[in-house]
Design a protein around this nucleic acid. Structure first.
Lengths: 346, 346
DNA sequence: AGATGTCTAGAAAGCGCTTACCCTCAGTGT
DNA sequence: ACACTGAGGGTAAGCGCTTTCTAGACATCT
C-alpha cells in the first residue's frame, strides 16, 4: 500500500515481449481486428496476457482509435427516484452494448449543466444523454445548444429525455398529454375542485404538466384558481412546503390536489397528514411519474405512469440504431394514468 | 447530423498553431503546469482556445500523464434508493474534487461483479468504490480480492462500503451493532414476539443485521423462532413475498416484524395491508437504512439511520486524504435508531 | 522457371497530450 | 568585459495503443 511500491501496470508491449511476437500481432490477437492472426501466435499471446494479468488501457485505446466506449448521462439529481430509475435503464442497456456510463449531476442549475457538458465533452463520449428538467429561457440555453451541436459535429450523439423536440434526438415525454389524461380521469371520478403543486415556474416539465392539466379542466368548464396553483421546488420538500401553504390558505373549496411529480406528492401527503388532513379520504391526491415507491405508500398514489427504465433504454438506443433520426420520429413514450386509492370515486 | 460531416475535434495542436506558439507552450498555458508562461503568450493561447472551442481530450491527457481523474463506483442496483443516495454523495464529493464518476451495476451477482471490476480496471480509475452487498463465500471472492490487490499495486485505490474490515480501506457500516440497538429500542417499547424478513442468507449485510438483532433479543431472553425468520430477496419484492409468507403461516404470536432493509419493509407493508393487517396498529414494523422515503410513508417507518450521502462522501475521501489507512482506522459510521409511528409503544 | 498474386508478421507512423531536455537570452556578479 | 545564472520557449521523446504500410514466404499460373 505504500505509494512507492507501485509497479506500473502490464502493457501490451510486455505481453508481446513475453509471447515473442510483435506489438502489432499482440494487439491484433487480443482486441479483435479485421485481420487474421496465426492461431499458434494468437494462443501464445492470449496465454501471455492471461499469465501477466494484462488489462488493456481503455484510454489508450480510445486515443489510438479516436473513439470511445463512454456514455455520459446528465441528471438533475441522482438520488431522485425518477432519475435513478432512468439511470438504471441507461446503465443496463449500456452494459449489454459494452459501454461504460459516467454520470454527472446538474442540480437543475443551467450554469452547472453547461459547465458539466463542457467538462464531459473532454471525455469524448459516444453519446451524451441529458435527462432532466430543462429550465425555460435560461441565458445559458443558447450556449448549451451550441456546445451540444459542436459535440455532434465532432461525431458525438446527443439524446434528450424531454418534452420538446429540440434539434436533437429526443425521447419524447408527453407531459402535457399525460397531465391532460390524468385530469380527464379525475373528472371522471367525480372531482371538481382542484389545486396544483406546480413546481418552479421555469421548469419546462412542471409547466407542461400544469398546462395540460389546466387544458383538460378548461374543456370541462372547470376553473383552476390562481391561488390554487402553488409554485415550489421540484422535490419532496417543495411538495411538503406547497401543501403546507395550501392548508394555511384553506382547503374548503378543494377536493383534489395534483402534485406535478410523485416525490412532491409524497412530501405533500406528509404535510397534509401533519395538518390533520387525511390524503385520499379528505382530499384526493395525484402525482406524476409513477416512481416505484408510490404503489407501496398509503393510500397508494394515483399518478401518470412513465416507463422510466424503458425511457433510459430508449434514450441510449436512440443514439445508435435506426432510431437515430432526430426529433420525434421515434414516437413519444406511452404514458398511462394509473388510478389508485389516493383518488377514490367521489 | 450526417455521419460524414464530422469534422475532427479541435486539438491542442490547432490551438498552438492559431496562437503562433509551440505545442508545449500551449499545453503549459492551458492545463496549468509547474512552469510559468509569459503572460502575453498565455493570453494569446487562451484566447485562441476560446475562439476555436478547444476542449482538452481527457483520455489523451490521461495517457500522457499516466493518471486519470476517474472514480469508478460499483453498486448492486442504482435504482435502489440506498445505492442512489450513496451514489449522490460520491458524485457530489467527486465533483468538488474535479473527478468524473462512472457507475456500474453488479446486480448482487459475484460473477458480474468480478467481470465489472476487470472491465473497470481498463479505465485505470484513481479509485474504485465498491458499495454493495458482499456475498458470503462466493467462489469469486478470492479472485476479486486478487484483482483488487493488483489494482492497488498499480497505484489505484480501493474503498469498500461494507461491514467487514477487508484488507482494503473501508467505510465501516456496523450493521450488527445497528440491528442490536434497534432490537433494544423495540424491546424498550414493549415488543416481545419478533419475526424477521432476513433477506438472502448469503448476503453479508443482511446476515449481520439478522445476527445483531438476534443477539440483542437473546440478551433479553427472547426467542426468535426459525419459522419467524424468512429468507427472500433483498429488495421490495422480497419484502412483499416474505410478508405474504409470514401472513400465511400465521401472525398470532408476532408483534413486530423487522425487515432488514427499508425497501423490503415497504414491500412488506403493502403485503400486510393486502392481507388485512394494518402495519403499526396490528403489527409493529421496523426497517433498516432510513432511505429518504420512509419518513413520508404511513405509518412512518421506524428504522436505523445510516447517513448515506455522508457514507458516499467518506468513501471517496477515504481513498485520498489522511483517512487512507486501510481498515477501520477511520471509525465506523454513526448509525442511530429512529423510532417512528410504525412501532407505537405497546 | 519466372511472373504474379495472396497472406500475414512486423516496422513504424500516428492518436492528442505531457514533460524532460536543450538552448537562447536577458540579467547578474566580479 | 566576462563567464554564470535562471527564466522560459521550443524540440522531441514518450504514454499505450491501433493501423497503415512494407516485405518476406508461399502458392498458383503460364
Amino acid at each position: 500500500m505504500e505509494p512507492g511500491t507501485n509497479k506500473p501496470a502490464v502493457t501490451l508491449n510486455d505481453v508481446a515481449l513475453a509471447a515473442g511476437v510483435s506489438l502489432a500481432t499482440a494487439s491484433r490477437s487480443l482486441n479483435g481486428s479485421a485481420r487474421k492472426v496465426n492461431e499458434t501466435y494468437r494462443l501464445r499471446v492470449v496465454d501471455a496476457a492471461q499469465r501477466l494479468g494484462y488489462i488493456p488501457n481503455l484510454f489508450a485505446q480510445a486515443v489510438a482509435k479516436g473513439t470511445t466506449t463512454t456514455v455520459a448521462l446528465l441528471v438533475a439529481d441522482i438520488s431522485d427516484p425518477y432519475f435513478s430509475t432512468i439511470a438504471s435503464g441507461v446503465i443496463k442497456a449500456a452494459e449489454t452494448a459494452g459501454l461504460v456510463v459516467t454520470i454527472a449531476v446538474t442540480g437543475r442549475n443551467p450554469e452547472r449543466e453547461l459547465a458539466t457538458v463542457r467538462a464531459l465533452r473532454g471525455q469524448r463520449p459516444r453519446v451524451m444523454i441529458l435527462a432532466g428538467s430543462r429550465v425555460a429561457g435560461s441565458p445559458q440555453e443558447a450556449e448549451l445548444r451550441r456546445e451540444l451541436s459542436a459535440f455532434e459535429e465532432n461525431g458525438g450523439r446527443v439524446a434528450f429525455i424531454s418534452q420538446d423536440a429540440s434539434p436533437f434526438a429526443t425521447v419524447l415525454l408527453d407531459n402535457r398529454g399525460g397531465a391532460r389524461a390524468l385530469a380527464e380521469s379525475l373528472v371522471g371520478l367525480g372531482y371538481r375542485r382542484f389545486a396544483v403543486l406546480a413546481g418552479p415556474p421555469d421548469i419546462v416539465a412542471a409547466q407542461d404538466r400544469l398546462r395540460g392539466f389546466r387544458d383538460a379542466l378548461a374543456a370541462h368548464d372547470l376553473e383552476l384558481a390562481d391561488r390554487h396553483v402553488i409554485h415550489t421546488d421540484f422535490n419532496r420538500d417543495g411538495g411538503y412546503q406547497g401543501a403546507t401553504e395550501l392548508v394555511r390558505n384553506g382547503l374548503d373549496d378543494v377536493d383534489l390536489l395534483f402534485a406535478v411529480s410523485d416525490v412532491m406528492a409524497m412530501g405533500a401527503m406528509s404535510a397534509l397528514r401533519e395538518a390533520g388532513v387525511e390524503p385520499g379520504r379528505d382530499l384526493g391526491i395525484a402525482g406524476y411519474d409513477d416512481i416505484p415507491t408510490v404503489r407501496d405508500i398509503t393510500p397508494a398514489l394515483t399518478t401518470v405512469r412513465i416507463p422510466l427504465e424503458e425511457v433510459g433504454r430508449r434514450a441510449l438506443e436512440l443514439s445508435f440504431g435506426v432510431g437515430s433520426v432526430a426529433g420525434a420520429a421515434n414516437g413519444p413514450v406511452v404514458t398511462e394514468v394509473v388510478c389508485r386509492d389516493s383518488t377514490p370515486r367521489r
